[in-house]
Computed example of a mutant assay.
Amino acid sequence: MPRMLDVSDEVRSEIGDDEADRLLGGAHAPDGYECTSCRTPGDSFQEPTSTVLFVGEETAVLAFAHARCIPSQVVPVSEEQLLGAVRSISQAQGDAPAEAPAAAAVPAQSAQAQPSASGAQPSAPGQAAILGITCGLVLHADTGHAALVVEPTGPVGRPGNTSGTDEFLDLLQDAGFQPVADLNKTPDQLPGWSVLVAMGKLHAILQPAAAGGSTGWWQAHQPLQVTDAWRIAAGQLSEVTMYAVPAGMVGRQPREDLLRQALERAVAKGQVVAASLPLAGT
């Protein structure tokens, strides 16, 4: 019985025609796997299966996912994040060889309720500043959406701007983020941007690269654990809502109701931009 395996053109170009053909012929492809997206079992003989290639600076890891969860694609990650994921995968599989194809894990779906936050150094345009990232569920009408609230610790200016003027929201609007007038409305999806969740943790926000593909806009120094509820909401909708506010506008709220109240106050002041970002991929 042939495997129901999809190898996209971009994955094929990375691994080569010979390896792609071997995969499609059954070599290096597991009968059963843990989906890199929803973390539930999959069977490549029984259901359409995507090949997902995680690519670092020097290392690449091939993973598998339900085709209904994510398409076959190449996902760029930092070398440190990729090696960390490989170590976690190897430990989970009883110290199996890291180079063996495994179910790595990326875009997720799974859950809890309290917001969590972390700080990290953005690789976004403008001055270097520490970004605070808060994860929580935000209701759009009656539907809970997985959300990220991005707030720098200080002003963020354009390259060469030494005046201290905060241009953080202007920079993001230049990239396609839109001002928010109503928190109950889901913002439009922003092409080329995505959110990378691997091994149940938030790893990065990716933006389009000038040479094609994606590059890191924000990357966690240490991957941020997200709640099961957040991952389930993200997985069900296959996207995350990213809100951005200027420094000191929202703060790190300990509960989701307080997070929403702070966002509503920021919206009333015209100090929120947002976009819907798909889970990983380009």
Rank of each mutant, 00 (worst) to 15 (best):
N184W: 05
Q46Y: 11
Q112M: 00
V55D: 05
S90M: 02
A67P: 00
H66N: 01
Q178N: 07
A262K: 07
D174K: 02
Q93W: 07
Q253T: 05
I15V: 15
Q114R: 10
P125A: 13
Q236D: 00
D174T: 07
A204Y: 01
P122D: 06
L148S: 05
Q225H: 14
V195G: 01
T49H: 09
D188P: 08
A103I: 03
G160I: 07
T36I: 00
V150T: 07
A220T: 09
K201Y: 02
Q253L: 12
P48S: 09
L206P: 05
Q178E: 11
A60Y: 06
Q114Y: 01
E10F: 01
K269N: 11
V272A: 08
T165H: 04
V61C: 09
A65D: 14
L148G: 03
V195L: 07
W218A: 00
R3E: 02
Q91W: 11
S194F: 01
P125D: 14
W193V: 00
I232Q: 13
S88Y: 01
S110Y: 03
C69V: 10
G160V: 03
G281Y: 03
F45K: 07
V106D: 07
V273A: 05
Q81H: 15
A262M: 10
P107C: 12
L137M: 15
S238H: 10
A100I: 06
P155H: 04
A175H: 04
T134C: 12
Q261K: 12
G192N: 10
R265K: 13
A29H: 07
A105P: 06
T59V: 11
A108N: 03
V240K: 04
V11N: 04
P179T: 10
T59Y: 14
Q112V: 05
L169I: 04
A102H: 03
V74T: 11
L171E: 03
S37F: 12
R12V: 00
A198F: 05
Q112W: 09
A209F: 11
Q173F: 01
E47A: 14
G160Y: 09
G119E: 04
H140G: 02
M199F: 11
L139H: 12
G164M: 09
T36Q: 08
L83S: 05
Y243I: 01
A229T: 12
C38T: 11
V150I: 09
G25K: 07
P76F: 03
Q219V: 14
L237Q: 13
V226E: 06
P159M: 02
M4C: 04
Q207V: 14
D31C: 03
V197W: 06
G212R: 02
H145Q: 13
E80Y: 00
L202K: 00
F64A: 03
K185I: 15
R231T: 14
Q222H: 15
G281P: 00
A198Q: 08
K269I: 10
Q225K: 12
L206Y: 09
A108H: 09
R265M: 04
E19R: 14
S123F: 13
A108Y: 01
G32T: 15
S90Q: 08
H66M: 09
L53I: 05
V195W: 05
R87G: 05
L202T: 08
A27F: 12
G136E: 08
F64Q: 05
A120D: 02
G213S: 08
S88E: 14
A98F: 04
Q219K: 13
I205D: 10
M249R: 15
D170R: 11
A108D: 03
